[in-house]
């Protein structure tokens, strides 16, 4: 869970960096997009890097989901199917100290998975093309994000990603055995900072398009 999560986080950072290229204008963005396809050439054929990446990412996602479902299932078994709602008392249902992020890991993860499908159909394959299809990645982005509800769906999804990262990053450090009592506060602070940075980083382009700063 921690290792696949870490791979996905690294991907997100690269992805976010790419997205911010949109501020360089259509040419720069499309050039970057094309560059991804020929990355590693001539050692790799066209799209070779992308496919390696896709395989790694897909494997990570599947392993991540498998681990998540295993944990989920074990928790259901261990709590007799009642999860954190196994006590009759309705008091203190939010626990003693747990973060909102830790509550949303499972359903938040499902939201993210659905979003990824939607996102791929939208901007990668362009099967969903609100605002009009295009061969230019730049135009796809600009066309889509001029519509308020598209931005809203991305906004909600990015919040889910942010919460997922907030708990996920801290959790990964702990799972990999690198937490120490004196580091714990710092690790949590970094997790929050990275989660916020990635969420904000991803949200800048769509909002910029929506408010007419780009395109």
């Amino acid at each position: 869970m921690a290792i696949t999560g870490a791979i996905l986080v690294l991907f997100l950072i690269a992805h976010m960096y790419g997205n911010l290229m949109i501020f360089g204008g259509q040419e720069a963005f499309d050039e970057y997009s094309h560059h991804l396809r020929v990355l590693g050439a001539p050692m790799l054929p066209t799209n070779g890097f992308l496919w390696i990446m896709r395989v790694v990412l897909l494997a990570s996602v599947l392993i991540h989901m498998y681990a998540a479902f295993t944990l989920w299932n074990r928790a259901r078994q261990a709590t007799a199917g009642k999860g954190s709602r196994r006590y009759h008392s309705k008091k203190n249902r939010t626990g003693v100290q747990r973060t909102y992020a830790s509550f949303t890991m499972r359903w938040g993860g499902v939201v993210i998975a659905l979003f990824v499908l939607y996102h791929l159909l939208h901007l990668t394959t362009n099967h969903i093309a609100p605002g009009g299809a295009s061969d230019s990645p730049y135009e796809r982005v600009v066309n889509g994000f001029q519509i308020w509800w598209v931005v809203l769906t991305y906004f909600i999804s990015m919040l889910a990603v942010g919460f997922h990262l907030r708990h996920g990053l801290w959790s990964a450090v702990q799972t990999l055995g690198k937490n120490k009592a004196r580091r714990q506060r710092a690790i949590n602070a970094v997790a929050t900072a990275v989660a916020v940075a990635i969420t904000v980083g991803f949200l800048i382009p769509p909002f910029s398009v929506l408010f007419g700063l780009v395109g």
């Binding site: 295993t70 928790a75 078994q77 003693v96 830790s102 702990q174």
Partner: peptide, 24 residues
């Protein structure tokens, strides 16, 4: 028993203050 997802409720209620980093 279920698997640990590092939520930290255990350490928060532990009457002896066993720290969470023991799990790490």
């Amino acid at each position: 028993f279920g698997g640990c997802t590092n939520i930290g409720e255990c350490a928060a209620v532990c009457p002896k203050g066993i720290p969470l980093d023991t799990i790490s």
